[in-house]
Computed example of a mutant assay.
Amino acid sequence: MVAYTHFGKQPDVFKHLILCEVLHNEKPQVYVETNSACAIYTMTRTPEQEYGIYHFLNEIIKSSTLKSSLYYQLESENMANGNYLGSPALAMKIMDKNVQEYLFFDLEESALENIKSFATHQTIMPPIKTFNCDSIDGVLKLLPSLPKTTFLHIDPYEIDKRNNNGYTYLDVLINATRLGMKCLLWYGFMTISDKTRLNKYVSEKLKKANIKDYTCSELIMNAIRKDTIICNPGILGSGILATNLSQCSKTIIQDYSNKLVEIYKDARYKEFDGSLYNDIISKKQNIKIKRHL
């Protein structure tokens, strides 16, 4: 049985909204996902989902940009039937036959079976390979054999946690970036102290690797505190770190982050302030902007 419960929460909305638009724009030949989880979920309408995907759907009328997004089009159709599409399904729907191969990693074998089952119901589907193993080692081993036109969706939550061989998911991004591949890495945090530590970790590792052109956008709940956790909507803050993307995709990341801040302006999670703010960090432009809209 799959134990995942993250689906449909606010960080998923952020992650999947941007993933859909970037994949459509970049049009990769090979798609790799490090932490796939399932392709499709049955919604249970928890308070966390109410704050996440349901708030997004209810407030979509406020933003023509979000209403025309691929994420909205795909999720609204499936949500009407009580289902939520995870990133493997979104990727398949958006890229369809235009991808040569999909490579999905997950430690839960049942999640990979869910992906394969979903794929069998697609009209046209390129080859799918699944890997039930540690994805840090697995992807690092595969990278030299993959084409430069590969897109990596790295989705671990903890990007600084070392595996048994001493590598992290940020190492995966760095190695793929050096090979010219496009990368989108998502991570989460629960306190400002965690955020500060991760920002320092990322900037120092990328500087050491001589990766100067990257974009990082974070969405953070205003209820977040320095060292304490007063509520738990799933995750209080999350970020998307991107490398080797086109300028159009970089703009998409920034614009859609701001649009989500706008539609969450008056949001509540239970009795807590559910509004968001956005930190955008771009090494190339040497800027860090904190936005409250």
Rank of each mutant, 00 (worst) to 15 (best):
R178H: 12
W186N: 06
T42E: 11
T65H: 09
T150N: 13
N232K: 12
M190N: 01
Q29L: 11
L241M: 12
M1T: 13
G52I: 04
R268V: 03
S193Q: 05
K207E: 04
G82A: 06
S135M: 06
L112E: 08
L241P: 04
E271H: 14
Y54N: 06
N199C: 01
I263K: 04
V2G: 06
L198N: 02
G188N: 08
L66F: 13
G82T: 10
C38P: 01
G166E: 03
G180D: 00
K116F: 11
I220Q: 02
M181H: 00
E75V: 10
Y277I: 11
Y264A: 06
G188K: 00
V172Q: 01
A39R: 05
L146R: 15
K161G: 07
E48W: 12
Q247L: 09
I252T: 05
R197N: 02
L140K: 15
L112K: 01
L70F: 15
D227E: 14
V13T: 12
I40R: 09
A119V: 09
V139N: 03
I53C: 05
A209R: 03
D12W: 11
S238I: 08
A111W: 02
Y157F: 13
C183Q: 00
L170C: 01
K67D: 08
I224G: 00
T149A: 15
E26L: 13
M43K: 09
N163W: 03
A111S: 14
G166A: 12
Y167H: 10
C248G: 03
C20A: 15
L23H: 11
K288Y: 10
H121P: 01
T120Y: 14
D194H: 00
L90Q: 14
E75N: 11
M43S: 09
H121E: 14
D106S: 05
L219V: 05
F7H: 11
L66D: 04
G274T: 04
E48L: 02
E26N: 15
Y157E: 15
K265Y: 10
F104R: 05
M92R: 08
D160P: 07
E59L: 04
S193E: 05
S203G: 01
I240G: 02
D171H: 01
K116P: 08
G237W: 12
T228I: 07
V139T: 15
M221A: 05
N58A: 14
L236R: 00
D12P: 12
Y169G: 01
I136C: 14
G180W: 06
A267F: 03
E218S: 10
K270F: 14
L23V: 07
S275A: 12
P126K: 04
L107M: 08
A37P: 09
L107R: 13
I253S: 04
K15L: 14
